[in-house]
Design a protein around this nucleic acid. Structure first.
Lengths: 239, 239
DNA sequence: GCAAAAGTGTTTGGGTTACACCCATGC
DNA sequence: GCATGGGTGTAACCCAAACACTTTTGC
């Protein structure tokens, strides 16, 4: 509990943060979901890991700000970007700092796994496995948990997986993305039918060579409709 | 990262607005979806209708602010309240006023139809049928459209309908809510099974008397689980 | 030929839809 | 009795899961 109305104590500050997802191969060589975090270099929560973010400047859209701080932290452009939620509880910050109250509008983004391999990583910016995170600064653990939930839910009825892949891909690669995000194995046959059934994906004439078995067809997404259903708000911005 | 960018031109203002839904009987006596709007009493868009809202004060949560401006405009308490989206595009306001840029965090709310009948209505606060709105101020038409889409979607896999009803209700009344929101007729038999199947609703021993046919059982919601699935964020606040 | 993954076919069961039918009450 | 909605039964259909099976390549 702090001051009374805004008259004397100012107004809440507005910030934009981003949960950045990618897929990276783990030790076993399997794809696994990872997120990018930055280390706090000041109080509160000095030294802890947190979501990248910053203030919203006067002349940029919310999504632009999210995209910008993605670029600034990882050097990457998002393949998919969507607003997650606005977090503004009074107790987000430790009590003694309640005077600078921050409302964070959080976005979540997907970046391709090839690009992610070249992303800047350093002392204060690193990738972490999404399913084994230590507690983060502020309410960021909750935010990540919610972002994961949304990603998994949304994957099932849209074409999000494209965000992790290149232009052309085999159905096995696509299935690997699904399996990594959902965390369980899928039947290859049924997966094939599922994904072909809704017209999301079209076969190209090319095949992927160099495997030590029958060469699989390469597919691409049907660019006509981008069914990332957000209803009237269809702006699942791709780079 | 604090107040860097803002140096000369200030920072965007933060506001909270609410899309308030209820069901009201139309001329034909059928329930129909309505929303509460307020008339603009200053520029821009003077005289046009808009969503109720206002600035976020320093010492209140986002949901509290939404609840408060619901109370201030209609005199009512929400039966259900959920965050919708944060709108912050640069072009939300007419160009010549771009200096005071506003980011609106919008909530949507349900209020019971009995209460709504007693809501304050006046020159500057009125109920409108949700499916026949004239263009609203700012981007509020888009916001309402999105809120409608969310309401309809969410109804199908949660227990939102409770937000419109009293403690006890017949399945026909519940079905009427669904039909009003979805805008189409539903099969009574199948509806009954659907709603009983997922355990959302339990029969009481009472019946509704005074009809000129077989008296229907009264039901109530099972208060144990409030499956309004928001994942890790389960706070579908009820009064 | 053999291994391994691509790709296809078939069966099964659960869930939804459409619709027929009986039940209980007021008049 | 009759009209009216409450409430139940059921067959048809659709879709997704499970899993067997065939195909095509590298070695």
């Amino acid at each position: 509990m702090s001051k009374l109305a805004s008259a004397d104590s100012g107004v809440p500050t507005l910030a934009v943060s981003t949960v950045i997802f990618t897929l990276r191969p783990n030790q076993a060589g399997a794809m696994q979901l990872a997120i990018a975090l930055v280390r706090r270099i000041k109080k509160p929560y000095l030294g802890l890991w947190a979501l990248p973010g910053g203030p919203l400047s006067m002349n940029e859209d919310l999504a632009t700000a999210a995209s910008r701080n993605l670029l600034e932290t990882t050097g990457l452009h998002p393949r998919y970007l969507e607003q997650l939620y606005a977090f503004g509880n009074l107790d987000r910050s430790p009590n003694d700092l309640a005077e600078d109250r921050v409302v964070s509008i959080v976005y979540w983004a997907l970046v391709g796994s090839e690009e992610a391999a070249e992303a800047v990583e350093g002392e204060n910016v690193q990738w972490f496995w999404a399913d084994q995170l230590d507690p983060l600064a502020f309410d960021h653990s909750l935010i990540v948990e919610y972002a994961l939930w949304r990603l998994r839910n949304k994957l099932e009825y849209s074409r999000l997986a494209h965000g992790f892949l290149g232009e052309r891909f085999t159905l096995a690669q696509l299935r690997e993305v699904y399996e990594a995000v959902l965390g369980r194995a899928l039947d290859p046959g049924n997966f094939r039918r599922m994904v072909q059934g809704n017209g999301a994906v079209v076969a190209t004439s090319e095949r992927l060579e160099g495997t030590r078995h029958r060469p699989p067809k390469l597919y691409r997404y049907d660019s006509s409709i981008d069914l990332t259903d957000q209803g009237p708000l269809n702006t699942g911005e791709r780079k």
